[in-house]
Simulated assay, not measured.
Amino acid sequence: MDASPLAPWEDPRAQPLIRFRNVTKSFGAFTAIDDLSLDIFEKEFFALLGPSGCGKTTMMRMLAGFEAPSSGVIELAGQDIAPVPPNQRAVNMMFQSYALFPHLSIWDNIAFGLKRDKMPKHDLNERVEAMLKLTRLEQFASRKPHQISGGQRQRVALARSLAKAPKLLLLDEPLGALDKKLRQDTQFELMDIQETTGTTFVIVTHDQEEAMTVASRVAVMDHGRIIQADTPDRIYETPNSVYVADFIGDVNIIQGKANSGEGEGYRIFWSEGQPPLQASSSTDLSTGQSCSLAIRPEKVAISAERPEEAANAVQGKVLDIAYLGNLSTYHVELPNGLVIKAQTANTRRISRRSFTWEDPVWLSWTATAGVLLAN
């Protein structure tokens, strides 16, 4: 089957817009980026995600031209960009602080880079008006930055960054200064604008929800390396390591030893006196190999009685309950002290909870609900 044009990373014939080839960046004895190779394709909305100090901002600064690789090559549209100064790259960067000129109007902030490039006046006017329309700022054109809201300033910075039609737009924690509700609304605006312009966006964020919402692909980073780069659904459903499973969303991790069963099936010996857990894995594990079973809380069912047909069922008592409005998360302590989280959707009003603190309950899940990972 041919790869979808919406997923060029699955097409061996597709040419990447950005290519990192064995890139290392060191600051003295500290290695910020460690022999990293990565392809990013045209029109992608690509997210670099990881904890502080994992190297994501260093990658972005190298793309912008503010840092040079210690070794390896970074290509943009097939060209090694190391010798190209920042102001001559077809790359623009939008900073978290927005860096708007306080004394200039919104219109003039957007026009600033175009005027410096001596764009003809008629073309410049057309371009600025198009950017105001794209970011829905037409009625604010004559205002100064302090006269508009934080969300609107964010859109001005975006309009100014896109005005010069860069091949690549870099966004460094662009929504970090916004409150949660506005940030969520702005994420969808960003996606619409990216789709409309067709510009390749690379966003740096430590907010998993943001990365999972906006990105076509997410690269999860740690200590200067990319641990997994994939679509948000694959990162969530089929993480390639305990690190990725644990970093993205909420997860239960059960440690054990694998014993192969039938086909892709394994029995996991995980606690003395407890029956083995059933799990399937496309990864080959040898008998007795140390492994981790990663199960998302929403895939764990909670019940008062032991479900008859369940592939996996364990008993425990309710330790904590987190009520999140649309969801309730039950923290259930097993006899060996392990706490497993089970999530239920609150589809009806809660007049009385099904379970409360200290209640004995059964947790169950299917053999395919978890992801079995080698340690």
Results as ranks from 00 to 15, higher is better:
3 A>I: 03
7 A>T: 08
16 P>Y: 04
19 R>L: 10
37 S>L: 10
46 F>N: 09
58 T>V: 14
60 M>T: 07
61 R>M: 15
64 A>F: 06
77 A>G: 11
81 I>A: 11
83 P>R: 01
86 P>R: 12
93 M>L: 14
103 H>S: 10
106 I>C: 13
108 D>R: 09
112 F>K: 07
113 G>P: 06
114 L>M: 07
116 R>E: 12
121 K>T: 12
123 D>K: 14
128 V>N: 13
131 M>Y: 09
136 R>G: 14
142 S>G: 11
156 V>M: 07
164 K>Y: 08
164 K>L: 14
170 L>K: 10
172 D>N: 06
173 E>T: 07
183 R>Y: 10
184 Q>H: 15
190 L>P: 01
200 T>K: 05
202 V>S: 08
207 D>Q: 00
212 M>K: 02
213 T>M: 10
216 S>N: 15
221 M>G: 12
223 H>F: 12
244 V>L: 12
266 Y>S: 08
269 F>T: 11
272 E>N: 09
272 E>S: 13
278 Q>K: 08
278 Q>T: 12
280 S>N: 10
280 S>C: 13
281 S>Y: 06
284 D>W: 01
286 S>L: 06
299 K>G: 04
312 N>F: 11
317 K>Q: 12
317 K>N: 15
324 L>F: 05
327 L>F: 14
330 Y>M: 06
332 V>E: 03
343 Q>V: 03
370 G>W: 00
